[in-house]
Write a protein that binds this DNA or RNA. Sequence first.
DNA 1: GTCTATAGGTGGATAGAC
DNA 2: GTCTATCCACCTATAGAC
Lengths: 188, 188
Amino acid sequence: MPTPSTRDLILDSAQSLAQTRGFNAFSYADIALELGVRKASIHYHFPSKQDLEAELLERYRSQFMAGLASLDSNGDSSVVVLQRYAHLYSSTLKNGRICLGGMMASDIGALPETLAPSLSSFFEEQVSWLVKVMNEGKENNELNFSGTVQSHASVFLAALQGGLLMANAMNDQALFERLAETLIAELQ
Amino acid sequence: MPTPSTRDLILDSAQSLAQTRGFNAFSYADIALELGVRKASIHYHFPSKQDLEAELLERYRSQFMAGLASLDSNGDSSVVVLQRYAHLYSSTLKNGRICLGGMMASDIGALPETLAPSLSSFFEEQVSWLVKVMNEGKENNELNFSGTVQSHASVFLAALQGGLLMANAMNDQALFERLAETLIAELQ
DNA sequence: GTCTATAGGTGGATAGAC
DNA sequence: GTCTATCCACCTATAGAC
């Protein structure tokens, strides 16, 4: 594992701050303090905060999709794959974070409009992946539900996003675990 | 209808800004501009922003609960009551807003800790009300599902909150409507 | 690439006249 | 209750030395 570049360290710090406080509640000064560099150095890598935010979402999206690809690479059952998916969200909760996509969605009214398309794509890719997994589950008779797969995929994602918000605000990790379990049981 | 007091007008403006931009993305200057008063006047009614935020949540919570009380005052079926509940959320979406509780939950990491208990209560009251409605629906054989009522109530609320986030970010009101429909159908 | 220094603006908040 | 005036801290961002 090579030493992370300053650029990556900045993104890591910014992502942590964005997931815990929100996009409009952290500053270059916060990152500078955490990394022990000057604000001007951050502006060298990301001239404007909008540049930083855009890169933040893009990196998160690509890393998240790469993670999804590895979730269903084996021949595991759809139920197990969905459990692993839910665990991706659950694990962010342990650090007092919520999904970066969900956070950005809540801040969308105060962010540059140029970020909206990327954010929409993030959600659409999640739903598409869930649709694929649920379709496979139906074909294998591991999943069984009425209504369109698309609708159930949207509900699944929305419930996890909202569940993260609630569990984090109430400081109740068990709430999220029960919620995810119920969601998956409902599809069987 | 008496003329609203300045205090109420301030709360109305602040609530609109908080629901669209977030708690850390509006200022006293924004409210002052909208109402045509000076910032100092707002500080007279709400000395600190924390005071304003606390009152904002408390008013929202009490108004929301009053609204819920009128939703199931008649002998309507549980399905209809749940549809009306979902419509409460749907209607905020039309103004480009999300639920104030959901917004505050996403900002909780950048808000005073004193607000957390009130926010937890907000979610707990929503879930308790949903549990009551779902229990009645089960007794009347209008609703039919496995798993605890508590879990399904949590899922229901979480999915609506997350659905608001997604539909607002993607500017797709129909997404929310389909999502709500699927959620209710799943309980029958 | 990182630094010092600084500009120009906005944040929440207060004092005191009316 | 609302105003003018002001304070100080913090924000994003840039210029220019090293």
